[in-house]
């Protein structure tokens, strides 16, 4: 596989961009940072499928396309299905010898938001991974249905104010915990599963390259800070993502073959979660005295999860 060098940023920056500007994503949206990075870290041909979501509606506005590669969109839930179908077709045609350029390397990638990955496309994704198609699924996790106005999804964390789990006099926002999608996908036995963040560009690019190289279904959950629904200033996207990874709200780790867990980033100073919560408008209500217990619970959950990850890494099971 032809890989773009990611030894340092200067070398990485010689990549030829294949994701065009003038898409309609919000200013400061992390979606396009992640998509750009994936498309820059390889120069193989890419076949990309997108679920419905912010990324899909903003990059394919009739009559424009922002993709310089093959790109498929079918329905809300089936980017994984589209990618696996394209992959099966490619294999069949390769076997029959009807491909125009059989030696050209092709990689299959599917993008989905958290709504279409955690909720609506869950069974389709599960099916595609179980069938073992050779593709990479990347979830752009912004923890709500940002495209339709910020409804709660099963990726929304506890305490977040969303339009369908609103904070107010009787409620502190979403009451349920976030679904652990990475563990679910690892339990499928996928050869490479990871959680990555765009602020650590090198770890993310390495993870992407590893996933593209690995044969079989790979799943990557990426943190995509949403300026509109998380309610912070567009310029602070990277700062908020930094806080997310340094407070361990989003630990960065990979799971190989469903059991070998590696922590890819250990923050030097672990920041208390209050700082992450205070950087966003959606957690504003948690700082009222009556909601103090929610912050304590979030911190407790984070500590437990970090402890669990470290033990898993040590135990190698």
């Amino acid at each position: 596989m032809a890989i773009t060098s990611i030894k340092n940023l200067k070398e990485f920056s010689t990549a030829n961009e294949r994701f065009e500007g003038a898409h309609l994503l919000c200013p400061g949206c992390a979606h396009s940072m992640i998509v750009r990075e994936l498309m820059n870290c390889t120069d193989d041909n890419l076949v990309i499928a997108s679920n419905t979501g912010c990324l899909e509606v903003s990059t394919a506005v009739y009559p424009y396309t922002s993709w310089d590669t093959s790109w498929i969109h079918i329905g809300f839930e089936n980017a994984a299905t589209a990618a696996s179908g394209a992959e099966a077709m490619y294999k069949a045609r390769k076997r029959k010898g009807t491909l125009k350029d059989p030696d050209a390397p092709v990689k299959f990638v599917a993008f989905g938001g958290d709504g279409s990955t955690y909720d609506i496309g869950f069974q389709w994704l599960s099916g595609a991974v179980e069938r073992g198609h050779d593709f990479t699924y990347i979830c752009l996790d912004n923890e709500n249905y940002a495209n339709t106005g910020g409804q709660r999804s099963s990726a929304s964390p506890i305490g977040a104010n969303t339009t369908t789990a609103q904070a107010g006099r009787f409620s502190y926002g979403k009451k349920e915990k976030k679904k652990d999608m990475v563990a679910i996908m690892a339990a499928h036995g996928a050869p490479y599963v990871a959680q990555l963040a765009p602020n650590k560009w090198k770890i993310m690019a390495k993870g992407f390259q590893k996933a593209l190289e690995t044969e079989g279904p790979c799943f990557i959950n990426t943190v995509s800070a949403c300026t509109t629904e998380w309610k912070f200033d567009p310029k602070d996207t990277i700062h908020v993502t930094d806080l997310a990874t340094d407070t361990l709200m989003f630990p960065i780790y990979e799971i190989i073959d469903g059991h070998e867990l590696n922590i890819l980033y250990r923050p030097k100073n672990i920041i208390p979660v209050e700082e992450y919560l205070a950087s966003q408008g959606r957690y504003k209500h948690l700082f009222k005295p009556e909601n103090k217990h929610v912050i304590e619970r979030i911190q407790k959950d984070i500590d437990a999860k970090w402890e669990y990850l470290q033990r898993r890494e040590e135990a190698r099971v």
């Binding site: 940023l9 990485f12 010689t14 065009e20 003038a22 898409h23 396009s32 940072m33 560009w201 996207t237």
Partner: peptide, 20 residues
């Protein structure tokens, strides 16, 4: 100093870098 931080994090493909 050509560190290319702006290039890697620009969401709109708007930082133009050529030959490092």
């Amino acid at each position: 100093i050509d560190c290319q931080n702006c290039w890697v994090w620009c969401p709109d493909t708007s930082i133009v870098s050529r030959d490092k």
